[in-house]
Design a protein around this nucleic acid. Structure first.
Lengths: 207, 207
DNA sequence: TCCGACCTCGAACTTTCGGATGATGCCGCA
DNA sequence: TGCGGCATCATCCGAAAGTTCGAGGTCGGA
């Protein structure tokens, strides 16, 4: 018998997962959590698998809750369940110690199979996800530095170079310099393209 | 007895809604649809209420399906159910003929109440949504034209004026002209600020 | 200790963007 | 029938943005 904890802020999704697992005799939902904090609190030893949503309306986010759950000895396996399949989400979840990464629009069978695999201690990455992870491993080192990310965030908010300079107490030259590096790393040649690229990669969330 | 059709591309959400309504003796789920097309096809006379997701993975989107369902005589009422509560979504859904607009993270009771209200022919807008609609009514007329929105979408993708011009078979001057109008309507003064503003208002989706 | 990264800044240059102004044609509505 | 909104395009000009080259500083790892 595999004991499950469902962590999702949507009551409808929780009900759906509960209904889904009710049809399987070897799966038992032993609890629900509507927030990251609740998920951590309810992940006691009697839970085998935690189904974790990555996006909670407010408070602790899924990846953080995952990390906190996994860092305890004898912790349950965590299966991340999310709407989006952006690189940043995936990588973050895997780094936080998730045993698997599934999309919410996945067919029910796939979901159930992933739960059983995770319970056996196997990694259960969705096929599309596994490929993406590999691609990330082989990708050139284009990670933005902290300062560059900061500048890019302000660019995404629609600020001009001068405004960014003032806002960060820099000269405009420095802002431009950061932008040159950002463009190179993202392989683009304009600020709007940089923002679009960063969004695609999941380096920028918001809205 | 109120007969329901559930239209959502997520199997888990469909199961959740089905489980939710199963507890109410006066509600009966008579069908499910995983796409906009399917929703239109299954909205025959025997259905009282259609619960419509706005975001489908691909194909016909929710607001379009809503319009097609509602334009038929004796059509069922459509309750729009969505993750986001952006102005554009709400206004679009209401214009398409939705009887109500609900968020997926709403408590189950609210959802059930909305279904019953819609079945009685009443409008069932979530409280937060109703207020927003009023605000929109009183807001200045800053709605972008179809062409302007098209241009802005390409800007958000990071394209230059020249690229947009080529892509839409226009001269660069026309693109600039559209941008001037976009800037005026959004009360900004640069393309990146326009994109940021449009995102805030929900006029741009993607990613 | 040296090397590499990151952060900072300047100056000169080219390209693109944005503002101003004006013009034409189409379409719907009063 | 005329008015207004929309879409299309042109030209000119100043202001941003982006490019190139160079240079000084900190800091952590080899």
């Amino acid at each position: 018998m595999i004991r499950l904890l469902i962590a999702d802020d949507h009551p409808v999704v929780r009900a759906g997962l509960r209904a889904l697992f009710a049809t399987e005799p070897d799966l038992l939902v032993v609890g629900e959590a509507a927030s990251g904090e609740e998920a951590v609190a309810r992940s006691y030893a009697g839970v085998d698998i935690v189904l974790m949503d990555l996006q909670f309306g407010n408070g602790m986010q899924g990846w953080d809750a995952t990390r906190r759950i996994r860092e305890r000895p004898g912790a349950p396996h965590v299966l991340v369940l999310t709407n989006y399949d952006t690189d940043a989400d995936i990588l973050g979840a895997v780094e936080a110690g998730a045993a698997g990464y599934l999309l919410k629009d996945a067919p029910p069978e796939e979901l159930i199979a992933a739960v059983r695999a995770a319970a056996r201690g196997e990694s259960a990455l969705a096929p599309t996800v596994a490929g993406r992870l590999e691609a990330r491993q082989n990708a050139p080192d284009d990670a933005l530095s902290a300062r560059e990310a900061e500048v890019l965030t302000l660019v995404a908010d629609g600020m001009s170079n001068r405004e960014i300079a003032r806002s960060l107490f820099l000269s405009e030259a420095t802002v431009k310099s950061h932008l040159v590096h950002i463009f190179t790393k993202l392989q683009v040649s304009s600020r709007t393209a940089a923002v679009a690229s960063a969004r695609e990669r999941g380096a920028i969330r918001s809205v």
